[in-house]
């Protein structure tokens, strides 16, 4: 008897998941159709690779944000963190050029530092929220200000520029491509797959969900809550550093306006993708779609004169609100059926 129920359950389960996953995917397909109708060049190979490359930054950061948010936290510092890391990377590479020369070693040193800085910055956010028992919103609001002012200070209010000789070596990381796909897209794909596996196939992912769902239950269930929560911020830091590594060669510079509002775009991507803001339910696949949707909106506006490009933020804002509203409707229905 239990066998019979079990098999029907999995069927129901699949259908439910389908409805939930389908939302962001349908939205993205609709956007693509609209884009194509407005201008057939939207679906040209050049535009699509451009679109994917542009989504990579926000997408990679948003994968990290999915873990933080699923475990019931929030990280507002990612945009400033990216700017600060970019600034320090550029300073380190410029000064290392004198001893190491403008070669691969310099670039690798820069990337290595970027990763260490990202892990460290994430760890600080994590420790302050868990051991320091300060709310994540406050901690990351604080570090957001700190990192932002640090990059302004390093750049002395202006712009930090990477030496031209190094740019030549570093350039392929953004502009190069492997097997027809730009490098940033590959990084995005790898981060997305790793993130998905981590969230859906490991104990760590299950622990994040449990903590976001009910921290007390997690604590009583032998979960090292502080450690797992700190880990989510460390993962977020790692994702920021990876995004920065592929971002720096794009312009070869960093200033106080680098990465402004990335934190909000990342959080928006996560929420559009169906992750619940108060934690307990996270979807990496949805986050990827969310990042693609956000970039696609901007891209379509570029392609058409119908709506001014300056209204990009308006369109993104509308999409976020509509996405969450649709999710709400879905949750409400599920609830009504239950009780």
């Amino acid at each position: 008897m239990s066998d019979v129920t079990a098999s029907t359950d999995t069927k129901v389960n699949w259908m439910r998941i389908d409805i939930k996953t389908a939302g962001p995917a349908i939205a993205l397909i609709l956007l693509c159709i609209i884009g194509f109708l407005l201008n057939p060049a939207f679906l040209s190979e050049g535009n699509l690779t451009n679109l994917l490359t542009r989504s990579a930054f926000i997408g990679i950061i948003a994968v990290g944000a999915t873990f933080v948010i699923t475990a019931g936290g929030i990280d507002l510092s990612v945009g400033s963190m990216a700017a600060a890391i970019a600034g320090v990377m550029i300073i380190i590479m410029n000064s290392a050029m004198e001893t190491l020369g403008p070669g691969l070693a310099t670039v690798l040193l820069g990337c290595g530092c970027s990763i260490l800085l990202g892990l460290g910055a994430g760890w600080i956010n994590g420790m302050l929220t868990t051991k320091g028992k300060i709310e994540a919103f406050i901690v990351t609001l604080g570090t957001m200000g700190i990192y932002r002012s640090l990059v302004t200070y390093f750049a002395d209010g202006g712009t930090l520029s990477l030496e031209f000789a190094i740019r030549g070596v570093y350039r392929p990381v953004y502009y190069g491509s492997v097997l027809g796909l730009p490098t940033p897209v590959w990084v995005f794909i790898v981060v997305a797959i790793c993130g998905w596996l981590l969230m859906n196939r490991t104990a760590f992912g299950r622990y994040c969900t449990a903590i976001g769902s009910n921290e007390s239950v997690a604590k009583y269930s032998a979960i090292k809550v502080d450690r797992i929560k700190t880990m989510t911020y460390v993962i977020q830091g790692l994702c920021v550093s990876l995004a920065t590594i592929i971002y720096v060669p794009r312009l070869g510079s960093a200033s106080s306006s680098t990465g402004v509002l990335w934190e909000l775009e990342a959080i928006a991507a996560v929420i559009i993708g169906g992750t619940v803001l108060k934690g307990g339910y996270g979807r990496i696949g949805g986050t990827i779609l969310g990042a693609l949707i956000l970039t696609t909106i901007g891209n379509i506006l570029n392609f058409t004169d119908l709506i001014s490009n300056y209204l990009n933020g308006t369109m993104q804002g509308l999409i976020i609100i509509i996405a969450v509203w649709l999710q709400r409707g879905d949750w409400g229905k599920a609830k009504a059926n239950k009780s």
């Binding site: 969900t209 009910n214 007390s216 239950v217 307990g280």
Partner: peptide, 9 residues
């Protein structure tokens, strides 16, 4: 309810 089970799972 508060410490034993994840009610929304």
């Amino acid at each position: 309810k508060a410490k034993g089970l994840l009610l929304d799972k």
